[in-house]
């Protein structure tokens, strides 16, 4: 059992959630409450990672992170090392490929909040922040939770992008999914089987937990 890879994977998933969910709440709410020219294009762009092969995403990230791009160069000059094949690079990649998994459920949740409630909050004299914090976030919470779980679970299983921009470095970019691939190639079927079973169990528990929570919340507000 490769505990290092497991810990790395959980950390990557947790940090992806931590970075992405606040962004998803901001973007999801913005898309839910406003309409503007080019909204459909924006939504389509945000949904792209859902349909693009991971290799395409991986390729573009490599190009964008690489020492040839201004982004890659800026990062290199700021931090003294390249973003490719590092944990930070993996985190950025993970955040990008998970955008639709986080934004879509959050956006749906904010869309489901009746505009009447925002009007009511305004006529109650609630500030914008108080309205978001006291009314919208609690009501959107099941959707946000779904976003959290999907992002977390999807990060656990992400393979193609991780392989392409991560490069399978133990303790740095070698996630469980990569470690399993690695063990199979090394003819170490026992380790591969153990890790696969563990990943299966974690994914199952995560998803089941979210269904349970969403169900409970749904009943409460009904």
């Amino acid at each position: 059992m490769d505990w290092e890879a497991l810990w790395l994977t959980l950390k990557l998933a947790g940090l992806t959630v931590l970075v992405l969910i606040p962004l998803a709440i901001a973007v999801g709410r913005w898309l839910a409450v406003t309409s503007f020219r080019g909204k459909a294009v924006t939504e389509a762009a945000l949904a792209l990672p859902l349909v693009l092969p991971p290799t395409v995403v991986g390729f573009y990230l490599l190009v964008a992170f690489g020492s040839g791009s201004w982004f890659g160069q800026t990062y290199q000059s700021l931090f003294g090392h390249s973003l490719v094949f590092t944990f930070e690079g993996l985190l950025v990649a993970s955040v990008i490929v998970n955008i639709p998994f986080a934004v879509q459920p959050v956006q749906r949740a904010f869309e489901a909040i009746s505009p009447d409630l925002r009007d009511a909050a305004a006529t109650c004299g609630m500030s914008w922040w108080r309205m978001v914090w006291r009314i919208e976030l609690p009501l959107a919470w099941p959707g946000i939770l779904t976003g959290v779980v999907l992002t977390f679970a999807h990060t656990l299983g992400e393979f193609g992008v991780v392989l392409m921009v991560g490069g399978s470095i133990p303790g740095e970019t070698k996630t469980v999914a990569i470690a399993i691939y690695d063990r199979v190639q090394a003819f170490d079927d026992v380790a591969a089987a153990k890790m696969s079973a563990l990943l299966l169990a974690i994914s199952l528990v995560t998803i089941a937990l979210s269904y349970l929570l969403t169900q409970r919340l749904g009943r409460r507000y009904a």
Partner: peptide, 21 residues
């Protein structure tokens, strides 16, 4: 003057009570 700064009480047609409170 935005709604939240007007000293006005309003009952909406749907009542729009906050369902989680």
């Amino acid at each position: 003057i935005p709604a939240r700064q007007r000293q006005v009480g309003m009952v909406l047609q749907s009542y729009a009570l906050f369902p989680h409170l």
